[in-house]
């Protein structure tokens, strides 16, 4: 098994497909873009529902607060831009206009992480999960692939309150099936195993699957969990897996000091003391490059996960 065995699909296309379907059914859905509608694919919604799409230009602060105003009057507002501009650039607008008053605004961020590629560090946000996790009232979702993105968007539209959904730019391996309703706050078991638990989020879930496959060759049975809701975190599933396998590896395309791995670490330190290793981007900014090269450069491959698993296994039962 390697990455080429998976079908590669675009999260952005699936998000847009879900959005257009929602727009047909629900008149309360409005969409906001900030001069990136063709990149984030809200242009497809705009084509079908021009009166319900507002392109505010390169003015993300304005976009977030306008979305809040629309939501305060009963609209379900989807504000979409690149993750770098939809979080850090507008943190205070999200904090005051959206999260504090718990308004029904969905921030749909694409182009997160280093897989943005050639655009470089200015566009490769690796700390957005930290910002969004820190906000009271905010739900944080990172779908693992395109079909899960589609299902997550449908669920998010029904949930009343602020949500941050993170996706990448690249086409990524499809590993989930597209059946069933996405449940906010529920981690899913993709592969059972007893020796170690690999918890992935976003694009790294596929790398966890590859790592588990390789580990099996060495008679190591790895459990794989897709942690697609970062907040509220599924403590029950994480603690159960930690207790049953005795060791945890987390993997994320995000800074490893403030993202999903640290959320899992907090969960374990209070509930189940097992060896743990975090795979993620070290505390550095990214750079330009091909996305696969960057994944290798910053330690985000199946091999890095396997190495981390061996480290955890070595510390088990000490």
């Amino acid at each position: 098994m390697n990455l080429k065995d998976f079908k590669l699909e675009s999260q952005r296309e699936y998000w847009a497909k879900a959005l257009v379907e929602l727009g047909k059914k629900r008149k309360d859905i409005v969409v906001l873009s900030a001069d990136l509608s063709s990149s984030v694919k809200t242009s497809l919604f705009a084509k079908d529902f021009p009166e319900r799409h507002f392109n505010v230009g390169i003015a993300e602060q304005n976009m977030m607060s306008i979305a809040a105003g629309l939501a305060a009057c009963g609209k379900t507002a989807f504000a979409s831009t690149f993750a770098a501009f939809g979080t850090g650039r507008v943190y205070d607008q999200i904090r005051q206009s959206i999260a504090y008053p718990k308004l029904n605004v969905k921030i749909i961020a694409t182009h997160a992480g280093i897989t943005v590629g050639g655009d470089g560090a200015t566009h490769q946000i690796v700390e957005d999960l930290a910002l969004m996790r820190a906000l009271p009232n905010m739900t944080v979702i990172v779908p693992a692939d395109a079909p899960e993105t589609y299902r997550a968007i449908k669920t998010v539209a029904d949930y009343v309150g602020p949500v941050y959904v993170r996706m990448g730019r690249a086409n990524i391996p499809t590993i989930t099936n597209s059946k069933g309703k996405f449940k906010i706050g529920k981690a899913t078991l993709l592969k059972d195993g007893d020796d170690v638990c690999l918890i992935g989020t976003g694009i790294m879930v596929s790398r966890c699957m590859l790592a588990a496959h390789e580990l099996k060759k060495h008679k190591i049975s790895a459990r794989v969990i897709n942690l697609s809701t970062i907040k509220p975190i599924d403590t029950k599933t994480i603690v159960k897996a930690a207790r049953e396998t005795g060791g945890v590896v987390t993997a994320e395309e995000h800074s490893s000091i403030v993202g999903m791995g640290s959320a899992v670490a907090m969960c374990l330190v209070e509930n189940a003391h097992v060896p743990m290793k975090r795979v993620g981007i070290p505390d550095v900014f990214g750079q330009s490059g091909d996305s696969d090269e960057l994944m290798e450069k910053y330690g985000l491959t199946a091999e890095n996960i396997i190495e981390a698993a061996h480290d955890v296994l070595g510390r088990k039962g000490r």
Partner: peptide
């Protein structure tokens, strides 16, 4: 009608409310 305090956000919120109308 709106949570404010951090300056400069209210007019944008008002634009959103006016568009909703």
């Amino acid at each position: 009608e709106a949570s404010t305090g951090s300056e400069g956000q209210g007019l944008s919120m008002g634009v959103g409310m006016a568009l909703a109308a």
